[in-house]
Write a protein that binds this DNA or RNA. Structure first.
Lengths: 203, 203
DNA sequence: AAATTACGATACCGGAAAGTTTCGAAAACC
DNA sequence: GGTTTTCGAAACTTTCCGGTATCGTAATTT
């Protein structure tokens, strides 16, 4: 096991005596980590680079995080927290269409590089992999599933559809193009997938 | 630019004078590269590891390839060459089903780890990315597209379907599960995707 | 004021891995 | 036999990077 943040060694809640932790430095470090993932790839995301971009010291980073990966994971947590929820217009087509449009917008923006970097890093670091699933994949899927279940209950979608598969069918094409890069991600793709998915969900 | 194989510096075709290249060592090296990708991840795929596993010398590797990546790319080329074609039974459902079943079998086997490794490595090395697209993605897509076009021409599939999107819809779910690992790849998934894809392709 | 803790800067350590070089031996040609 | 080119083994160089240690300073509590 491993913790992703360090505790103050002695004090527990610790309204300690000395100089307090610089919360601003903390957010600068996390912000720097995200920005590095957005502009370059994981391989160049060194601790020196984070420290320099954050105007912080490497010692400060290792004072609060046990290793490099923990910084990126916490940065991902904060970055993901501010994402939009699955739409809920009562219209199945519109819900899916809006969601996929937003998804394309997300992936083609700088944030898309972050996800690429994480998926790549997850390949060689199980802890990153679990964090990526837990922080990004799982919440998104749960939200999507809840919305689709409601559509199923209210008769706008066949109850025979296996939602776990359907969700993979929805998002799979975008992740594939993101990772393989054989074609570009466009709003038109979102529309096309929407129509196909709707036919797949009918009957 | 960069060449992926070195030429003998002077002679061109060179039924040269000295000891000839050990073709067996060449295939041992490529085989070792593939096996390493199948059993561990790219990060551990060092040239020392290749040399040791191949019973070859690092000098021999760098005698014939300009760098590590070139070895893996050539290894991928040889590994991919022996893959099965898209089925052609004249039955759309059966063609897709067989193809996806084979795909699942491929990805869950040792070869799957190779593709994961390549997709991850492609993220930080443009040359690997291009090779992966050119050697694996593109041929597979072209073959699939040709088969589906025939189904379209012969009326078993709607001509309105954008095949580029449809192909992403077919394979996307599997790549997604492969890379994200949120759920397992099973033959049942192949069947479920087949049925959904068929509904998406109708009308 | 004294004690305590965090800060930024920077030097340092240790390991890992890409790629090179050297060496003696082996395999071809002339 | 002499020349050439390759081979495997291994030492070597160089670079990079994760992580630690030191130091003088700043911020806070008692």
């Amino acid at each position: 096991m491993s913790t992703l943040t360090k505790e103050a060694p002695e004090e527990i809640v610790s309204r300690g005596r000395g100089r307090p932790r610089d919360e601003e430095a903390r957010s600068r470090i996390l912000q720097a980590a995200i920005e590095i993932l957005e502009t370059t790839c994981f391989i160049n995301a060194t601790t020196d680079a984070i420290a320099e971009r954050a105007g912080a010291s490497k010692a400060t980073i290792y004072r609060w995080w046990p290793n490099k990966e923990a910084v990126f994971i916490e940065a991902l947590r904060e970055a993901v927290a501010q994402e939009m929820p699955f739409p809920d217009t009562g219209d199945l087509r519109e819900d899916i269409r809006l969601q996929l449009q937003n998804f394309v917008k997300l992936l083609t923006g700088r944030r898309g590089r972050t996800f690429k970097a994480f998926m790549a890093a997850a390949q060689s670091d199980p802890e990153v992999a679990e964090a990526f699933r837990k922080l990004w994949i799982a919440p998104r899927r749960a939200q999507t599933k809840a919305a689709l279940e409601r559509h199923q209950r209210e008769g706008r979608m066949s109850k025979d559809v296996d939602l776990e598969v359907f969700i993979d069918l929805l998002y799979g094409p975008f992740y594939l193009r993101l990772m393989a890069g054989h074609r570009t991600l466009t709003p038109a793709l979102a529309d096309a997938v929407t129509e196909m998915a709707l036919r797949a969900a009918k009957d």
